[in-house]
């Protein structure tokens, strides 16, 4: 037997058990009477819309904050750089719930608790490192002479940034956006704790449907919709950028 094929077995087994099987179970539940009913309900689509919007806003906020942070880190001297990267990752050593409670305490005095702002702020805070790390990775790999070459050929600082730096770090931008967008799309704990009753997103609905045990079919249907949105975005990105030969 061919060695190479043998090595393919573990990943295939892993994917079958942890990806294909759950998707199949979810799909079989979703395409039931209760599941299809949920798909036809306007509430489902309103929640999906809200979640998509929140995920998009959070992703953009993470990108806007993460790019300058990643940029500054990449300009630091080697030793300090390692320290700052460590600090960026540090919050992950604390449990998500603990961090969210801490944020609640922080936000309460400002009177913004139980608002959409608090919900998005919490998500932004929680997922920012997932944006910073891939961005840093991409910016750090940028040849140092690239920006100079662009300026030399007549590009203003803004043109250098948008015509050379951004396109050349696009793989990092996309990776960061994917890493933030996908988990935020299905988030429920953080928005519920910080945003209160009004910050009710698709994730909350799914969690409720499954955990209360009353309507897992509806939960499965919504899960599929969220998965489909993610896949659609990835596919769309690939279509646009393959024609430019980026991926």
């Amino acid at each position: 037997m061919n060695d190479r094929r043998w090595w393919l077995f573990p990943p295939i087994a892993w994917l079958s058990v942890f990806l294909a099987l759950p998707v199949a179970v979810t799909a079989s539940k979703a395409f039931s009477t209760a599941g299809l009913e949920a798909l036809a309900s306007p509430t489902t689509w309103r929640l999906v819309g809200v979640s998509t919007l929140v995920a998009a806003v959070t992703t953009v906020a993470c990108l806007l904050a993460g790019y300058p942070v990643a940029w500054c880190i990449s300009r630091m001297p080697e030793r300090r750089r390692r320290w700052v990267l460590f600090l960026v990752v540090l919050p992950f050593w604390a449990n998500l719930l603990v961090r969210t409670y801490a944020l609640m305490t922080m936000l309460r005095p400002f009177g913004v608790l139980d608002t959409w702002f608090a919900a998005v702020f919490g998500l932004w805070h929680g997922w920012l490192p997932f944006m910073v790390l891939p961005l840093y990775n991409a910016i750090e790999k940028l040849p140092p002479r690239l920006a100079e070459a662009a300026a030399d050929l007549g590009a203003t600082p803004a043109q250098v940034f948008f015509k050379v730096v951004v396109p050349a770090t696009m793989p990092g931008i996309v990776a960061g956006c994917v890493l933030v967008f996908i988990p935020v799309l299905g988030a429920f704990a953080t928005p519920e704790m910080l945003g209160g009753a009004q910050a009710f997103m698709a994730g909350s609905r799914i969690q409720l449907a499954f955990l209360s045990g009353r309507n897992p079919e509806a939960g499965a249907a919504m899960t599929l919709v969220l998965t489909a949105i993610t896949l659609l975005l990835l596919w769309g990105y690939r279509r646009v950028h393959r024609s430019e030969g980026l991926l």
């Binding site: 040849p143 002479r145 690239l146 100079e148 070459a149 662009a150 030399d152 050379v164 396109p167 050349a168 696009m170 980026l246």
Partner: peptide
């Protein structure tokens, strides 16, 4: 300028 490292735009 022509750079020793070329500095072509990779994208």
């Amino acid at each position: 300028m022509v750079f020793q490292s070329y500095a072509l735009f990779p994208h």
